[in-house]
Each structure stands twice: as structure tokens, then as C-alpha cells.
């Protein structure tokens, strides 16, 4: 940063994003609070319900999201060096991995519907216990809300790649624009990092 003004503008942009991310953390925080209460009240039933989830698919999707975060971090690094092509390729890779995450999640939901595990597609009597039903309600709400965030992220990343490609976002001057979308994507990743053990690995 050569002079003070762009750096101050960048700080303001980033702070606004952090404020938004804080509200996102509180949104998912309510769901984490439900998960904690359920687990403290019904440890056995929750563990039994969690064991029925496909933790291997969840782990594979964690790998996909962690890798997409790496791609976004590489995109930010490339943007700050003014490398247009590197930025575009990395952003598209991250968006593609986001789509992969959603595809795998859809396959998983399909399996859970067939196994009579997913609320809204399964009669209440099919659940092992009322706490198991509650836990699966939480699973559906939390993962669906997260999937909505991934979908928004994919659109943002692809749109950003388009703007960088068309030079309507000039690099490295507009690198902060890549950075704020990156922050959002990393937070969506961090939320999944907590959702994974809280939902899939209760033992």
C-alpha cells in the first residue's frame, strides 16, 4: 500500500465483512447451543443417532471444503501480486469444489431419505427415539442452512472470477474485493469444521 487512503479503505471493507461474519457466527451459534443442550440431556440417544450418519461422506466433504479454502487463499495471494490468470483459475477451482460439496451433500441426503433418517421425508414413528428425531431435525436445519451459505459462496466466487477476468475488478488494486469474499468462504469452511464433529462424530 503506497499511501494511507487505500489501506484505510481496505480496513473499512474488511471490518464491515467481519461484522457480518460475527452475525453469521451468532446465527449458527444458536444451532450449536441446541446441539450442546441435546447432547447434555440425551447423550446415549444422540450418540446412537449420530452413528447412523455417513461420517465417511462428511469427512470427504470436509476435505473438499478445506481444499477450496486453500484455493481461495491462493487466489488472494495471486490477486495481491496482480496475477489475473492465477486469481481466476484459483477462484474457479474453489467454486468448482463448492459445487462438488453440494453434489456430495445431495447424494448423502438421498441416501438418508432411503434409510428413513431425514426429517420431512420420514414419518415420526420411524425414528429410534424422540431425542434422535430432534437430533436429526437439528442435522437437517444446520446442514441445509450451511448448504445455502455454500451456494451463495459459489455464486460470489464465480462472479468474482468473471469480474477479474473481464478486468472490471483491476488487480492488484482491487485485491481487497477478492479478500472479503475469501473471508466469507473461509468462515463457511470454519462453520463446517465445527458442524462435522458435532453432527457426525458424537460417540
Amino acid at each position: 500500500m503506497a499511501d494511507a487512503a487505500p489501506s484505510r479503505q481496505r480496513d473499512t471493507t474488511l471490518m464491515g465483512m467481519y461484522l457480518f461474519l460475527a452475525s453469521e457466527i451468532m446465527l449458527f451459534g444458536g444451532l450449536f447451543a441446541v446441539a450442546l443442550a441435546l447432547r447434555l440431556l440425551h447423550p446415549q440417544e444422540v450418540a446412537a443417532a449420530s452413528r447412523r450418519l455417513h461420517y465417511g461422506i462428511g469427512a470427504a466433504n470436509t476435505v473438499v471444503l478445506l481444499t477450496s479454502s486453500l484455493a481461495v487463499a491462493l487466489a488472494v495471494a495471486a490477486a495481491e501480486m496482480g496475477k489475473v490468470k492465477g486469481t481466476v483459475v484459483s477462484l474457479l477451482a474453489a467454486a468448482g469444489l463448492g459445487l462438488g460439496f453440494l453434489a456430495l451433500k445431495a447424494v448423502e441426503y438421498g441416501m438418508e431419505i432411503r434409510e428413513q433418517l431425514l426429517p420431512a421425508f420420514t414419518p415420526a414413528e420411524a425414528f429410534e427415539s424422540p431425542p434422535a428425531h430432534l437430533f436429526m431435525d437439528l442435522y437437517l436445519v444446520a446442514t441445509a442452512l450451511h448448504a445455502v451459505h455454500v451456494t451463495v459462496g459459489v455464486v460470489l466466487l464465480a462472479g468474482l472470477a468473471w469480474r477479474v477476468h473481464r478486468r472490471s475488478l483491476a488487480l492488484p488494486r482491487g485485491a481487497a474485493g477478492v479478500e472479503v469474499v475469501g473471508l466469507y468462504w473461509h468462515l463457511v469452511d470454519v462453520i463446517w469444521v465445527f458442524l462435522y464433529p458435532i453432527l457426525y462424530l458424537v460417540r
Partner: peptide, 27 residues
């Protein structure tokens, strides 16, 4: 690790770090 390196808190000043950690603290 994600916050410190990928979200680049390692290169930010105190204000930005407080902004980022504030939400975790409330939670």
C-alpha cells in the same frame, strides 16, 4: 489455523483481530 493464516489475521492489526475474535467470545 484457518483464521490465522487463510483469513490472514497474522498480518492484521489489533483492531481487526478483536473484530474477528469478538464473535467467538460472545459465542
Amino acid at each position: 489455523l484457518i483464521a490465522w493464516v487463510y483469513m490472514q489475521l497474522r498480518r492484521e492489526g489489533g483492531l481487526m483481530r478483536i473484530m474477528a475474535l469478538g464473535a467467538a467470545f460472545w459465542l
